[in-house]
Design a binder for these strands. Structure first.
Lengths: 218, 218
DNA sequence: TGATTTTTATACTGTTTCGCATAATATACA
DNA sequence: TGTATATTATGCGAAACAGTATAAAAATCA
């Protein structure tokens, strides 16, 4: 069988642009999605209009629809992007081999970086914000949020299990229970951050929580 | 000086209707405010329209404005009503003399009752929801929310201080730190409740947290 | 009974909202 | 060079929105 046209072997490299057919896009989807995420994090779903999103992304509305679907789909994609970003920022710390106390310190420091960033006030944790708002009435979004909670709970549990095996925790310590307390600490600093509690205070909360979860004197 | 008209001595009793002058109100302010609070707790500020509020309260829009001011003022009054209700539900337990573990159990049970109520899905903690949304951009609302956090932190701290004095806690226990962990536990169950985590799971979180904060064996 | 007062009921205004229809534009392909 | 394709740009349209103006209704007071 004769090949009419040779399809150039798709290079695995990300940088390769596959030469699309019509008028080229005036936007970069990843960047635009990041801008949409910023807006949703700042104002929430209901208070963010498509005009706001259009202005922030530099895409006009038809382009937004073409690229991401309607407002709800864009919200969901923004949330998934947030999760991917947060995971990327955390995975090295969770997967590393630091002593439990240092590891917790690093985790909470990274979390505070995420929650306190934002030019127009601290943006908090998008999972928590979404749980409080859209997750109530929207089953698909709720499922994602529950996944988010579970992912964090499990990551903390793995940390505490490992620490217990290493003799860093009391033999009576329950990794599962400690993991839920660690998540609770995440949630409380996320919420307080959103209400503009200063970083110093949040760090004090973290410090106290670590002292209870993983006391210094074995 | 001659009194033109004698003003009847205002009876102290609440039940006394002071015989108002014009057309009588067709609504009861306290009941209407409760309905507004229900709506705001369900959908949040931005997603609740004045039409919704008008339908829920049975008041038409001009009456709503006359009684409570604009939407923002109504939200603030609803939030203050929520705080008053929550305080009323908790004050006896916080002020009582139960052993610390039983006291914590009662507090969290009462909190779960508040967070899980609601016909159209669990309504969560209005302080947490408001912190996540309106508190960011509105200084007045933010102040109220910070008050709410502080009030709970202090109430927990008083509990743990008393328990320590009674020898119910380890001498090394820090009531302040434990109070913040107790608040964190409140926050995590409030958020998870909103995402429809079942009561059993939330109760398990509470149980584990109590075990860490106030261990059974002194 | 008639005037005053207070609330309710209706409807209006101007703005904002979401989603889409249509036309212009810029590229690849033949 | 002309055609097909994919995107952008403009703007329409119906609905929802917050807030208010105006008139009707229901009470007290004289």
């Amino acid at each position: 069988m004769v090949q009419k046209r040779q399809k150039p072997p798709a290079a695995k490299s990300d940088a390769v642009e596959p030469k699309r057919r019509g008028r080229p896009r005036a936007y970069q989807p990843e960047i635009a999605l990041g801008k949409a995420l910023d807006l949703f994090r700042k104002d929430g779903f209901a208070a963010t209009s498509l005009d706001d999103l259009s202005a922030a992304t530099g895409m006009n509305r038809p382009s937004l629809y073409g690229a991401f679907g309607d407002k709800r789909e864009l919200y969901i994609k923004s949330y998934q992007r947030y999760r991917a970003d947060a995971r990327a920022a955390m995975i090295d710390i969770f997967g590393g081999q630091l002593p439990i106390r240092q590891r917790l310190e690093r985790i909470y420091a990274a979390a505070l970086d995420i929650y306190l960033s934002g030019e127009a006030g601290p943006r908090g944790c998008f999972t928590v914000m979404t749980a409080a708002s859209e997750a109530v009435a929207d089953p698909d979004i709720r499922k994602l949020v529950l996944e988010g909670f579970s992912e964090l709970d499990k990551a903390f549990a793995a940390c505490f299990r490992l620490a217990k095996e290493n003799g860093e925790l009391s033999p009576s310590a329950d990794p599962q229970v400690l993991a839920l307390l660690a998540s609770a600490t995440i949630h409380t600093i996320a919420i307080r951050a959103r209400a503009q509690v200063p970083r110093k205070e949040l760090e004090a909360i973290v410090k106290g929580a670590i002292e209870v979860m993983a006391p210094a004197n074995v």
